[in-house]
């Protein structure tokens, strides 16, 4: 049962629209991060309930970068190159907007799903 629930959450459409906001929020908190670190962090915070798939993470990062919300830094770590992402100035402003939008959405959904909470 638990496995089914987990699988549902992983593939849920509800999360798809929030992927960019999740990434931006993490970057806002952590300064700069690389791809693998982001997937690990999300798994850690949600205790494995939410997993960002590799096939979705990089397209989202590249899209945000092309839109000017993220900038990149490359560093040699161990014996390989590592690409770090961080928020640009417009990315920081956008994060604030998207987070307040998301919070409002959550509030509205709570009111709709569980009207008692609104009292």
């Amino acid at each position: 049962m638990y496995i089914c629930e987990k699988d549902f959450m992983k593939s849920s459409q509800l999360y798809k629209g929030s992927l960019n906001t999740i990434i931006m929020k993490l970057l806002e908190e952590n300064g700069r991060m690389y791809g693998y670190e982001i997937t690990k962090k999300v798994k850690e915070i949600t205790k494995g309930e939410l997993k960002i798939t590799e096939g979705a993470l990089y397209p989202a990062l590249h899209k945000l970068e092309a839109e000017g919300f993220l900038e990149v830094e490359v560093e040699k770590v161990d014996n390989r190159l590592r690409k770090y992402y961080k928020l640009t100035e417009s990315g920081t402003t956008e994060t604030v907007n998207r987070l307040s939008e998301l919070e409002e959405f959550i509030r509205n959904m709570q009111t709709l799903v569980n009207p008692k909470l609104s009292y």
Binding site: E54, Y58, H62, K63, A66, E67
Partner: peptide
């Protein structure tokens, strides 16, 4: 395998779209 059945294909395609937009 974590990249799914299409492997890196989706990542490459989406990167192309993102950079063309840029």
């Amino acid at each position: 395998k974590k990249f799914g059945i299409f492997g890196f294909m989706n990542v490459v395609e989406e990167r192309q779209i993102a950079l063309t937009k840029k």
